[in-house]
Design a protein around this nucleic acid. Structure first.
Lengths: 157, 157
DNA sequence: TATTGTTATACTCTATAACTATA
DNA sequence: TATAGTTATAGAGTATAACAATA
């Protein structure tokens, strides 16, 4: 955080930022987010690792296994076991790379796409506490959060 | 989510709620939150489970081990191993309950309090993307999020 | 020689079952 | 009899090391 407010605003700005962040963190990381994630695991029959992998895959954009390992900062051998699991469940398939025959790429099967939709539906459902905000407050909240996510580094795959 | 807006506002309200929630989720659960948590693990030398336990403890309010198991929805035997770890690291101590001699309670040692402070400092640091908001926007964001956390069920220990 | 993915193996995390002590 | 915590054990989850195939 840099301070860009007025000369007397720095403290207030930083306090507000800290409080906002900690509220975000509590809301998502310690409560509803975890619940949602567990629900989605149960609904799809996947272990946490399998669900995280599922969420990074699609039917039409094959992903090299190596990229998954980089994204998750895990060992390639673990990606092997994750993809083994998804394949055994009929949710994903390995494809060979068109030009580099060392590389294997992963895509979702039809069942995988369906499971992904189910997971996204559960994860995307706002918690009951959102009822505490009026519609205009929700609109403002959405706008502010959109600014934050746009400012983030493009951490995707 | 119930819809309490005007007759034509329901769709917009729900869309805003969904988008706000998913932005929250992405921000905390898939990115900065995970990074912060890993950093805090490294800084304290604790495994994820140990850090989660540390965050629920304090020096002056002893917590029965059973309450920890309930809070984490885990088996009591796992609490035993978590507390064993914290104790071996010199961060926590077991106390006996004053009246019920079956119960053991956990408190932080002086080193535990210090480690907790270190962890909270890391976890509570807002991400760089917060620079994208003006001070007044941060103040508004904080206010909106405070309403949400206040509306949550009191999930604490 | 360097890189992708797999196998074999081991270590960590977490749960189940059986047990002790206490209520 | 029921409850708090521990021990022993077993099962996931994840990493390391050695290896085969390909670049």
């Amino acid at each position: 955080m840099s301070s860009d407010g007025g000369p007397e605003q720095g403290g207030e700005r930083e306090r507000a930022a800290g409080e906002a962040w900690r509220a975000l963190y509590r809301l998502v990381f310690e409560r509803e987010g975890q619940l949602r994630f567990h629900e989605a695991c149960d609904a799809t029959g996947l272990a946490p690792g399998g669900l995280k992998a599922l969420l990074q895959l699609s039917a039409d954009q094959p992903i090299p296994m190596r990229d998954l390992a980089d994204f998750f900062r895990c060992d390639p051998s673990y990606v092997t076991s994750l993809v083994d699991g998804l394949e055994a469940a009929g949710l994903a398939e390995r494809q060979s790379h068109p030009t580099d025959r060392r590389v294997k790429m992963v895509v979702l099967s039809r069942a995988g796409v369906e499971a992904l939709g189910q997971a996204r539906k559960i994860l995307g459902e706002p918690p009951a506490s959102f009822d505490a905000l009026s519609t205009s407050e929700l609109l403002r909240l959405r706008t502010l959060l959109a600014k934050l996510t746009e400012a983030e580094p493009p951490a995707g795959l």
